[in-house]
């Protein structure tokens, strides 16, 4: 599968990663263009989360390279902090800081990392909270919010750094169905703003609706990728077919 975009915003080139003897990413190659939304689908343990963690340099890769705007960010010895400033990440379990208010959760990185004045960072935070209908929660602590609200705050926290790419790691997996919708709305909004996104998700209907490209991972390999219509209605590979058949059987598509 060749690159769709001549110059990819993000490019994974034959990335390998193993934990002990277990190969989690096996020669993964993937291009993501600017403003593109790519969904990673696949069974649990297929390597989706590890892939996102590797892009954010939370996990060092064993071999291969990861290019951001033409710079190899996975090169051993490369300082990860400047990269992480440009790449936002949202986790399945929200990971908000429980000892800080919502507002402080959001302004922490802009003030500490980007050295923005506090007042300016707070203003940006309020604007973002308002956009996502959370402004009345600015003074609350994470424990006082519902799961959906916490996850939206986590997204706002990542957005406050004005990242060029957002990585979303099964952000709705810990939420009950009623709350999933509000988080998906936020992601739709981000798409509308032209954010480049890579999502790992089990929400197949949502993947179909939102993504420009769907990428199926199986046993650490990108087995098949393509536009959602094609992937969901006419997958070429038997593994993809099997996976989607099982998803449909469980009523999740």
């Amino acid at each position: 599968m060749s690159a769709i975009h001549p110059v990819a915003k993000l490019r994974l080139d034959r990335v390998r990663k193993s934990f002990g003897d277990r190969v989690v990413l096996d020669d993964v190659t993937l291009d993501v263009g600017a403003h593109e939304v790519v969904c990673l689908i696949g069974a649990s343990g297929s390597g989706k989360s590890t892939m996102l963690r590797c892009i954010n340099l939370l996990e060092p890769i064993d071999d291969g390279s990861i290019w951001l705007d033409g710079v190899d960010i996975a090169e051993p010895g490369h300082d990860p902090d400047p990269v992480r400033r440009r790449v936002g990440m949202v986790f399945q379990s929200y990971n908000l800081f429980p000892h800080m208010s919502v507002l402080r959760n959001i302004t922490l990185a802009p003030t500490k990392v980007l050295r923005r004045p506090r007042a300016e960072a707070e203003q940006t935070a309020h604007e973002l909270l308002q956009r996502f209908g959370l402004d009345d929660k600015a003074g609350a602590f994470p424990d006082q919010l519902s799961g959906g609200q916490q996850q939206r705050v986590a997204i706002v926290r990542a957005l406050a750094m004005q990242p060029e790419i957002m990585l979303l790691d099964e952000v709705t997996a810990a939420l009950d169905p009623v709350l999933v919708g509000e988080v998906l709305n936020v992601i739709r909004d981000m798409r509308g703003l032209g954010m480049t996104m890579v999502l790992a998700t089990h929400e197949m209907g949502f993947a179909r609706e939102i993504s420009d490209r769907v990428c199926f991972l199986h046993q650490g390999r990108v087995v098949e990728q393509g536009p959602p219509e094609q992937m969901f209605s006419a997958p070429e590979r038997p593994e993809t077919h099997d996976f989607l058949a099982r998803v449909i059987a469980s009523g999740r598509l």
């Binding site: 939370l58 902090d81 986790f91 750094m161």
Partner: peptide
């Protein structure tokens, strides 16, 4: 918690 903080660039 550490992962969240590092991913924000701290």
């Amino acid at each position: 918690q550490r992962a969240a903080s590092r991913s924000l660039g701290l």
